[in-house]
């Protein structure tokens, strides 16, 4: 019962944060609201016995990536979105329709039970908690998932180099 209440509390926090991201006119407040959403999601991961992912969510997502966003927002000093007419008439309505369409399709897929008929994996939560969540993930990263792990390293390297090359000031 308590863990169920915990879920609904976090679900409300996460949803309110997400709505605020879309609704706040100032980008700064949108970034801060997204941090709230990410912290709520970290709590949800904890309730799903994914401790490592929860901590990484707080350290990398809610801190490092959002810090990057905050820096850019403050660097280029945007005010609120100006109130001028949209180029595409009825853009808000189109957005609501797109969101509702995606939501109904996702709901249809998620609530059909055919996704849950596959065979169960070999890591029930009790066993993972006994071995240690981080230890299991570390083992898997260097055995079954070693190729994606290496590819991830290359991807991050390319990301760093690309960001530096793009954002550096051209000297003429």
């Amino acid at each position: 019962m308590a863990s169920s209440l915990f879920f609904y509390f976090l679900a409300v926090v996460t949803t309110v944060g997400a709505i605020a991201v879309v609704a706040f006119p100032s980008p700064l407040y949108s970034v801060l609201a997204l941090i709230l959403t990410f912290l709520g999601l970290a709590g949800l991961y904890l309730s799903l016995h994914a401790q490592f992912v929860a901590i990484v969510q707080v350290i990398i997502y809610a801190s490092a990536i959002m810090m990057l966003f905050l820096f850019v927002v403050m660097l280029i000093n945007l005010g609120r979105e100006e109130k001028r007419e949209l180029q595409l008439p009825g853009q808000k309505l189109l957005g609501a329709i797109a969101g509702l369409a995606v939501f109904s399709v996702l709901l249809k897929i998620f609530l059909s039970t055919s996704l849950m008929t596959g065979k169960k994996g070999s890591f029930p939560p009790e066993r993972v908690d006994e071995l240690g969540n981080t230890q299991v993930i570390g083992n898997l990263l260097l055995t079954d998932y070693v190729l994606p792990f290496q590819a991830m390293g290359v991807l991050l390297f390319v990301g760093i180099v690309g960001a530096v090359v793009l954002a550096r000031r051209r000297s003429r």
Partner: peptide
Amino acid sequence: HYLILSAVLFSLGVVGVVVRRNAIVVIL
């Protein structure tokens, strides 16, 4: 319930991408 919450977050993201005009908010 987890899946419905996930669908809600994803669709709110879609709404934001379509509705907002600030590039930073679209990336958010």
